[in-house]
């Protein structure tokens, strides 16, 4: 069985936020909601300072605390490891949001627009009332992964079945693929490089792997 993960090559990221913009476009998220965003972390003291750009979002944990706490079973995990939300049964209690150590979940109660108090064409066309007052988050563009299954394509290789953020990345930072397949792009990247996963000590077994140096 596949286990879809994402790799993030921190050596390459320049913090351009193109992934953020493409995610917002692909998923029509409202203002202030960024399923994929890039942190700008400054560290050290002058003159020895570092600046790191770190894409974050839902880590699609193998042991997701958000799913365990969800009282309605709205949060579920697919066989391929992707964690999703059934908007039709979510009660919007926010328990998943406080259980997620990656701050990846959002709940929006009021419809807001990017410019002024009226929706633009895109916002009007793609408004989804099902997503109001329920939890939402990155889906790893699971609709594309499903399309891959139906059409014999490979997520992470064929662009039409690869998450929007990965497709848009101008620096080759993000990669997506099957961790269980030793020949996949992500497995090979992880075999060749040193990596960590964020907050791994919390036992969530996250599905985003951050590459920080070669082996």
């Amino acid at each position: 069985m596949a286990r879809y993960i994402m790799t993030v090559d921190l050596r390459r990221c320049i913090g351009c936020q193109t992934c953020t913009a493409s995610c917002r476009h692909a998923n029509a998220t409202p203002p202030g909601v960024q399923w994929r965003k890039v942190l700008d972390i400054e560290s050290g003291e002058f003159p020895d300072v570092r600046r790191s750009f770190v894409p974050v979002g839902c880590m699609h944990c193998a042991d997701p605390p958000c799913m365990h706490v969800c009282p309605s079973t709205a949060t579920y995990q697919r066989d391929d490891g992707i964690v999703g939300i059934d908007y039709d049964i979510c009660i919007g209690c926010g328990y998943c949001a406080v259980a997620c150590p990656y701050q990846a979940r959002y709940i929006v109660h009021r419809r807001e627009f990017a410019y002024g108090d009226k929706p633009n064409q895109q916002e009007e066309a793609r408004f989804d009332p099902k997503r109001m007052s329920v939890a939402m988050k990155c889906t790893f563009c699971s609709d594309r992964v499903d399309y891959a299954k139906e059409h014999g394509l490979t997520p992470g290789v064929d662009p039409e079945v690869t998450p929007a953020c990965v497709n848009s990345c101008i620096a080759g930072v993000l990669a997506f693929g099957d961790r269980e397949d030793p020949n996949s792009n992500v497995s090979q990247l992880l075999a060749e490089n040193q990596f960590f996963r964020m907050h791994e000590e919390l036992g969530t077994d996250p599905g985003m792997y951050y590459i920080f140096d070669k082996k």
Binding site: M67, P71, S72, T73, I89, C90, I91, V134
Partner: peptide, 19 residues
């Protein structure tokens, strides 16, 4: 809760949810 009229769904997950 965001969807109070779905509150009955709170009973769906006794396997792991303490809520």
């Amino acid at each position: 809760i965001g969807r109070p009229f779905r509150a009955i769904n709170v009973y769906f997950h006794p396997q792991t949810s303490w809520m």
